[in-house]
Design a protein around this nucleic acid. Structure first.
Lengths: 229, 229
DNA sequence: CGCGAGCTTGACGTTGTTCAACTAGAGTGG
DNA sequence: CCACTCTAGTTGAACAACGTCAAGCTCGCG
């Protein structure tokens, strides 16, 4: 982990919501000094139960957002790509993170003091509504996850996860950055079953697998499996 | 279901957050006209996937908040008592309810047009922060539920639910309004297992059960079961 | 060359859902 | 007042689903 205070928002490759808000204000840029942090693969970006001090925005790389469960079993809720908020779900008035985030490749994030964010969203209602909207979506996702966890079998759960990844990478043909264990955590199944089911799906001609390259051959069928699971 | 438009906030037995906000404004009371609705036991208060049009506040009675899962299996997230928001989780910019709420006894709620709420929270930041804070707590609860569902055995899950009810009714000795089926949905286990485990816990001297009256005899042990589950 | 991380497969045992049958009490109508 | 039916609760047994353990494999790297 390395950090830098010498990247100004004007130089940043991403024009985030915060930037949009600031650019509307006179001398807006001067009131924040974003902290840019560079994480290596496998490093924690934030840790469950630790204090929320900054808003964190993912600029480059990717990360997994997961709950640290009992006896070292994790449940992965999301894979994060650039232009997404990392801190979002623990944003509003909750003091501690309800989850952990770890880099799954070398990753670059931007951190802004939470108090500045609060000032901004109280001043700027569009920003506030935007954050709240994102928040609402996350909640819907989580609700879905609860049902899936409790009521779908492991085939359905893995099918779900593969479709999720396909949506994330916006292609039927993608290289995932996840290990089999990671994939298991995403589908909330054991690593062994993740492996087994990938083979099964491959055997059945639904997907093709080569290492971490996945290609969805029969999307309809995969959706069917996800539904009936 | 019956409703009335003739209850003013000044007459209402509960002084809710909205009331506090309004009372600070000049002629505040005139800008809303709350709709009071009276539901019979078993009636829907709101239905999953239907449009969110009002903020709903529970004035009297109780209700269960649950996700309608696959093939008619529900998962109950919360039991609601007076002075709680019903619409909260779907409040911010999400158009549709991500869950259903049903009365578990005759229940009286107050409904306020969502657009008025939005105006209020943009004007009044204390109100906004309060709502966001509540929202944050709900998220933490849900995260916990996810871990529980995926990683605790049914004994641990039921123990959790009994402890939850004990906290809710603020007593080790309570009459729940839930059927065995409801209790099962709260713990996310089958009705049969809910029955079986209640008997087991009774046999083991951890609780005593008579119909819907539950008395927790050995709280320590119940907590232990919930942890190791 | 050896070591470790990631991956793969088989066998096994536990866990929890489901089905089915039965009881008890409450409400209804002949 | 008795048969009925409906709901809620209860119990047992069978089956399927999953996680876990164990063993072995491959590949990349020091």
């Amino acid at each position: 982990m390395k950090f830098s205070k010498n990247i100004s928002c004007n130089d940043c490759s991403i024009k985030c919501d915060v930037f949009s808000v600031l650019s509307k204000l006179e001398n807006g840029m001067s009131i924040i000094n974003p902290l840019h942090v560079f994480y290596k693969k496998h490093e924690y970006i934030c840790k469950q139960d630790s204090k929320v001090t900054h808003a964190i925005y993912l600029v480059k790389g990717s990360a997994k957002l997961y709950i640290e469960g009992l006896s070292h079993r994790n449940i992965c809720l999301n894979i994060l790509k650039p232009k997404s908020y990392i801190g979002l779900l623990s944003f509003f008035e909750s003091l501690k993170y309800a989850y952990s985030v770890k880099a799954i490749e070398d990753t670059h994030v931007c951190m802004i003091d939470i108090n500045i964010i609060k000032k901004l969203y109280l001043q700027n209602h569009d920003f506030l509504l935007k954050l709240n909207g994102e928040f609402g979506k996350s909640v819907a996702t989580i609700m879905q996850k609860i049902v899936t966890l409790n009521q779908k079998n492991i085939r359905g759960r893995l099918a779900d996860s593969l479709l999720y990844l396909s949506r994330l990478y916006d292609s039927e043909d993608f290289q995932m950055l996840l290990t089999r264990k990671d994939l298991g955590e995403l589908a909330a199944i054991s690593e062994e079953n993740a492996v087994r089911l990938l083979s099964e799906f491959k055997q059945e001609g639904i997907i093709s697998v080569e290492g971490r390259n996945i290609s969805i051959k029969d999307k309809k069928l995969l959706q069917k499996i996800s539904e009936v699971g």
